[in-house]
Every structure is written in structure tokens, then in C-alpha cells.
Design a protein around this nucleic acid. Structure first.
Lengths: 344, 344
DNA sequence: GTGAAAGCGCTAACAG
DNA sequence: CTGTTAGCGCTTTCAC
């Protein structure tokens, strides 16, 4: 590796062409491994390029080719265990396939999401992967992608747009299993704490909770469903609810491990025994769930895998391996993990 | 918001120019809010642009302007609480200032980091923010940025390159404080578990640990320093060490909360009382540290803030507000947070 | 197998 | 205040 200490001007294919006494077209073709170039010239060009440290100018190339080798990603927020697992998977696949990732976060704001979608469009991303914000209630801002036939895939927090692939888990049946597990363990009055019930993820889970109750001859009370942003700061709301409940709460299904873990601690602080008095199931299988005492029963939520599949799926689209019209929905398997917080 | 269902061709400034009977230059200037255009024409152009759904082509613009409004980021790995906090901060600032972020992860591999650095360079990032991989042992692959005067900033895992700004915390004194705290609490034989001691972050902490011991008349043993990748899977190594230690271990300073939390649990499982038998201090103030029982004393490590500052610093450079030659190092304040795991 | 030349869409120096 | 024009660096069609 030569360390180039001279502050050299950026060199172009013309420079290469000149110093080799060939045309810039030949240089370009050689660099792109075009079949109709003799391997001799190719070698010559490559060697020279290496020698002088030539690096292609992607703007020019993209402008000319009208594609960017870049995939845009919009997530609700970056600093979440689940999201960063997904991103890690996406990045792995993208990178392995020579794609760059432009990542932006909506911070759960619809306006920011709209802006992000615009910016990424302007940036000429070849495809967009999105997981939508709490606030977002329509998909107008994504129509541009669809109109321009830019592959668009939603993961986790999804919209059901015709012909638009999605990757998610079956939140409803996951919630059903979680709730059923609590029922099986003998819980008589199970409370559900979920995120914004406008979002597919959370309304699906609520529905699963409801179905499980009804399927097992429990009464479903709307009032037993707490809508909550799932941040640990708000653990008090849950605690208050439990304390003030007319009928003793003996089971809680919470749509997030971090909050669940904090609930465990907070409930213990005011004298409840977990799992004896109250059994708790979380969601996500965050690392936190194995550390809290008692360890937390939860739903395994395959973030990294979701990212990998999202990446592969969109890249397949881009490479034309899959007919983009045949929108495929991928539903990943979840898994109920039973730990101490629901033991009998 | 009009939903354009027709699959329209992408429109350019020439289209706008033609339909308004003005020159493309005027359109361009209007779009960029150039001072020397009458607000009347500006309005006209903007209106038309909005009407027909014009979006600027960044490749052309970037090619012409030789800048991309894009900042590259290389992190060791995406799925870490600390990293995602930093990224969240960077993204916030970048987005507020109209910059895109291209994010890539080295997965702690030197080769991948080199490749990422190349790719981002090719992608024409205006600046690069990097936190280096475990494996990386030289900065040749960053020289290109320096040669081309592309602002380069290291955060957290840093290299000391002349004139290259860094943002980090004072790991040595943080470790010193953590160790001193254990000493103050009466620990007589304190073990240190750190990451790869080649990395500044971890060697600095080790040095801080050593200095604290020596400053307080404790003997420093190299053999009491465990080099470790800090993944919870390897908690056994720590446990084995503690069990087999000739002199009873009564304090552990661990360079990461996740591992520390798992150590707490694992040690409890084999009969140790925390903090009575062994006191433990972690690092990072991850959410996990407040959930483990006993809660974990740790060093607060301001990830989000680090990201914000990294973003601001690099954007200031880019905007020319700060002389790029005056490389400024920002050392963020850390804070020892005392919780139950070190109580007496 | 290689070269010439016309773009890709936008910017900016220069002219008016 | 606005228009003309020459690039930015690469790709690609059409010739040879």
C-alpha cells in the first residue's frame, strides 16, 4: 500500500487514457470489465489505475448510468436494540453486494419521515427500505417511489400497499401465544401494555391478546389495554394502573422488553413478587431480558435476520432476479421464550 | 399532496425552463435561491417546480459542484447500544443541516474497514466520521482523505493523526475513577476485564486501572487484566478466572455493562453475593445497568452527545466556520455512577 | 477490439 | 436580473 503524501489532483479516466495512449472509452470499458476489450489492454489499464491510485467518480458514473448503487433506509429511530440489529443485517447484505446504505431516522415524526423520503429520493437511491413512524398515517410520501418503480419494501412497521413487499413477523399470533402462555400459567386478569395502537405492530399484538383471551373464556376489557410509548420513563403509568386496578392484576403482556424489565423492578419495589403475584411477558428478546431478575419471558423477534432478508429481497429485485410485480410478503417466525418471569 | 399515478418521466430544469420560457440557468438559480434573481421569477419557478413535481438530480448537481452533501460514517458495528446512540446524534445533526449519512460497519475487521473507507471515498462523501475496528493497526487507508483534505474525524475509537480532530472521553481517568471507587469501597484484589488492549479505548482504561491501583498502594498485576471481546457469551472466562484466582477477587472493573451484568448474574449463580463478596463496576451506562439486580455501578458514556458533537464539528469544518488545520480534540465528560453493585 | 462523440442534469463564469 | 455556454467525469452508441 503506497502512502500518497503528495496532495495530488484527482485523476480521471482521461488522465489514464492519455498516459496509456488509448481512448477514454477503452479505459472506461476496461475498468468495467467489458467483454469486448482484450485482456491485454484491460490488464494494462488496471495496472496503471492501481499505480496512480485512480478511483472512479461515482457522481459522473451514476449520472450517466442513472443508478446509484445506493439503498435508502428509513427507520423510526436508530438507538434501539431491535432497529440496530435490523440495520446490521441490511448493511451486511448491502455491503456484500456492493451497495451503499443511506440511513435516516424519522424519530417517530411523520413530517421528518416525509422529508427523509424526499431526500432519499433526491439522492437517487436505487431502492428504499422503510419502517414507519408512530405518527405516520398514510403513504402519500412513498407514492413517488412506486410511480417511478423504485423498489420499496417495508419492514416491521409496515403499510399494506398493493404490490409492495413487506417483511415482518406475525405480531398477532405472537401476542396470542404470549397471552395464552399467561393464561396457561393460571393468570386470571391479564393486562396488555402496547405501543401506539395505530401502528400495525401494536394493533396486531393487541388483537392477538384479545383473541387469546376470548378463545380461552376470559373477558376482554378495552380498559385493560394501556397505550404507551414503551419508554421506561413511563413505567409509573403501568404501576399506577396495577395498583389501582379493581380486579387484581396477575399477568401483564408488554410489547417491549425494556419497559417490561423496568416494570418488573418497579413492581418488586412496591412489594409485588414476580412471578408469584404477577407474571410478565415482554417482547423482542432484548439482551436486557436475560439480565433482569427474574429473567423475562418474551417473544424472540429476529431483527438481524429481518435485516438480512430485507436486504436480500430488495437486492434481488434490483438485480431483476425476481419479478418486482410479484410482491412477496415474508413473515418471519417468532418464538415464545419462557423464562422465570412466568414460572409457577 | 397530489398523488401522481401516471408513470411520468423524470423532469429536469430544462423542462421547467421551456415551460416558463426562461433559461435553465435562471431555473437553477431560482431553485438554489440565488440572490441575483428577482423574487418574482423565483416564485414562478418554485411554483412550477412544485406543480410538476420537480426534484433535483443530485448526481448532476454533485458532479458539477464536486461535493455531495453526504457524510460517511464507519463504525465497528451497528448493533450496540453505544454506537446506535452516537449514530442517532450524528444523524440528527446531519439531517438538520441538510446532510445525508452513508453508514457502514467494519464488523471489527480491518479489511472491511479498509474497503469501507475506499467505498465511501468513491462515493464522494464530503467528510468521514470513523470509529475504528478492533483489528485495525494503522491508518494508511485514511491517508487518502487527509491527502485530499476531506475532513476526517475519529470518535471513541481513535487514531492520533496530526491535525485530525477526535472526540472521545478520557478513558484513562474514567477507569481511574472506577478503580478508585472500588478501592474506596474496600476492595483488596481488583480484577480488570477489558477489550482488545491494542485499541486506545481499552488500553487507556487499563492504564487508568493500573494508575489507580499504584496510586493507592495496591499492587498491579498484569495477570489481573483479562483481555476479552466483551461479549456476554464469554462470561465463563471471567467466572473461571475468579474461581481459580489464588488471591480472592473482591472487585471487578469491566469495560462494558452487558458483560458486567452477565457477570453479576453468573457470579450469583455460583454463590457469590454481589456486592458483599465482589463489587463490580461496568462501563457505558447501558440501559441494562439499571435493570440487573443489584443495579450496576458504571461510567456514564455520553454516546448521543458524542454523536451530536461529532456531527456539529465536522459540519462546522465543512462550512468553513472553523479552520480545519486547527484540529480540535473534544474530550467529553464522563461520570461515575454509583449504584448497588458497589455498595457496602 | 478500439475510438469519436453525444449525452446524463446541473452549475457557474462570463456577458449583457 | 437573466441568458449563453462550457464543463463536471463517466457511459454508450455508432463507426471503423
Amino acid at each position: 500500500m503506497q502512502s500518497c503524501t503528495v496532495n495530488m489532483k484527482k485523476i480521471t479516466i482521461y488522465d489514464l487514457a492519455k498516459s496509456l495512449n488509448i481512448s477514454s472509452a477503452t479505459v472506461s470499458r476496461s475498468l468495467n470489465n467489458h467483454p469486448s476489450i482484450s485482456s491485454k489492454t484491460k490488464k494494462k489499464v488496471l495496472a496503471k489505475a492501481e499505480e496512480v491510485g485512480y478511483r472512479t467518480n461515482k457522481f459522473a458514473s451514476n449520472l450517466s448510468k442513472q443508478k446509484s448503487n445506493t439503498i435508502g433506509v428509513i427507520v423510526p429511530k436508530l438507538n434501539s436494540y431491535f432497529v440496530s440489529s435490523v440495520l446490521s443485517g441490511i448493511e451486511k447484505i448491502a455491503n456484500d453486494n456492493g451497495y451503499n446504505l443511506i440511513i435516516s431516522q424519522s424519530l417517530e415524526s411523520k413530517d421528518k419521515e416525509i422529508l427523509n423520503a424526499k431526500t432519499l429520493y433526491d439522492s437517487g437511491v436505487d431502492a428504499l427500505l422503510a419502517s414507519i413512524a408512530y405518527e405516520t398515517d398514510n403513504y402519500n410520501h412513498f407514492m413517488r417511489y412506486i410511480d417511478q418503480k423504485i423498489p420499496l419494501l417495508f419492514f416491521d412497521r409496515i403499510f399494506d400497499i398493493p404490490n409492495c413487499p413487506i417483511i415482518a413477523i406475525d405480531n398477532e399470533s405472537a401476542a396470542y401465544e404470549a397471552t395464552k402462555h399467561l393464561i396457561d400459567q393460571g393468570c386470571k386478569n391479564i393486562v396488555h401494555v402496547g405501543g401506539d395502537f395505530k401502528r400495525n405492530v401494536y394493533i396486531d399484538r393487541k388483537n392477538g391478546y384479545e383473541k387469546a383471551l376470548k378463545a380461552h373464556k376470559h373477558v376482554f376489557y378495552e380498559s385493560n389495554c394501556l397505550e404507551h410509548n414503551l419508554k421506561p420513563e413511563n413505567v409509573e403509568k403501568v404501576i399506577e394502573f396495577v395498583k389501582n386496578a379493581k380486579k387484581k392484576v396477575d399477568g401483564i403482556f408488554i410489547s417491549g422488553d425494556t419497559l417490561a424489565a423496568h416494570c418488573v423492578k418497579a413492581l418488586q419495589n412496591i412489594g409485588y413478587k414476580i412471578p408469584k403475584d404477577i407474571k410478565i411477558v415482554g417482547f423482542n428478546n432484548d439482551p436486557i431480558s436475560t439480565v433482569v431478575n427474574p429473567t423475562l419471558s418474551t417473544i424472540e423477534y429476529p431483527g438481524y435476520k429481518m435485516g438480512v432478508l430485507a436486504g436480500q429481497s430488495i437486492i434481488n429485485h434490483l438485480k431483476g432476479n425476481i419479478n418486482i410485480e410479484s410482491a412477496n410478503s415474508i413473515i418471519l417466525k417468532h418464538k415464545l421464550i419462557i423464562r422465570e418471569s412466568t414460572k409457577n
